[in-house]
């Protein structure tokens, strides 16, 4: 009887120490679910969801403050992936926040640009190169198509153009077969 009590006490002490050590040693700094949500979001950093970037939105979703249908660039597939991750029911995209669009690319009309640097400050991914009173240009490979550079431009020299499909990025269509019943 005494032995059993002793063994159990020792065991509980041992495991308590083990757990306590693990809690300190393998401490997770941020909520891992936020990272997982953030990995699904398209990282356009466009703010259409009402949060200042993808990560704040991911944090809001993780905290249960935001619905999962507030990301138009992510599209239906994004909502489905979030629903799958979080075990929630898929909901249609919030129509107030805009329609999902094909991927766009910002292009500066370099003849019109006055070099005001306002778009540089608006770009969330530093995809615009330029300096005061120098012509600006967009690094096409870094542009996420978020359109945040459009409102600050005083001369409206930025246009959003759809990304063209090339042979390297072309996708085979799903075969359309009508199977006989």
């Amino acid at each position: 009887m005494v032995e059993a009590i002793l063994i159990l006490t020792l065991l509980s002490l041992l495991f308590g120490l083990l757990l306590g050590f693990a809690a300190v040693r393998f401490r997770v700094e941020s909520d891992p679910i936020v990272d997982k949500i953030d990995a699904i979001l398209p990282q356009t950093q466009c703010g259409q969801c009402g949060y200042p970037g993808c990560r704040p939105y991911a944090e809001a979703i993780a905290a249960g403050e935001a619905e999962i249908n507030r990301c138009p660039p992510g599209g239906e597939n994004g909502v489905l992936a979030l629903a799958d991750l979080l075990g929630r029911d898929p909901v249609p995209l919030d129509p107030e926040l805009g329609e999902p669009k094909p991927k766009l690319l910002a292009v500066i009309d370099e003849q019109t640009c006055i070099g005001c640097t306002l778009c540089l400050q608006a770009c969330p991914v530093d995809a615009i190169v330029g300096a005061a009173k120098q012509m600006h240009t967009i690094i096409a490979s870094e542009c996420t198509g978020c359109e945040l550079c459009l409102p600050p431009c005083p001369v409206e020299c930025i246009a959003m153009v759809p990304v063209t499909t090339e042979t390297a990025t072309w996708q085979w269509p799903l075969p359309i077969v009508t199977e006989p019943k």
Binding site: P42, Q43, Q45, V125, D126, E142
Partner: peptide
């Protein structure tokens, strides 16, 4: 798309 998103995330974080 994933690579582009990772790049954008990295650049946004760095900014």
């Amino acid at each position: 798309e994933k690579r582009a998103a990772d790049l954008a995330r990295q650049r946004h974080d760095q900014q």
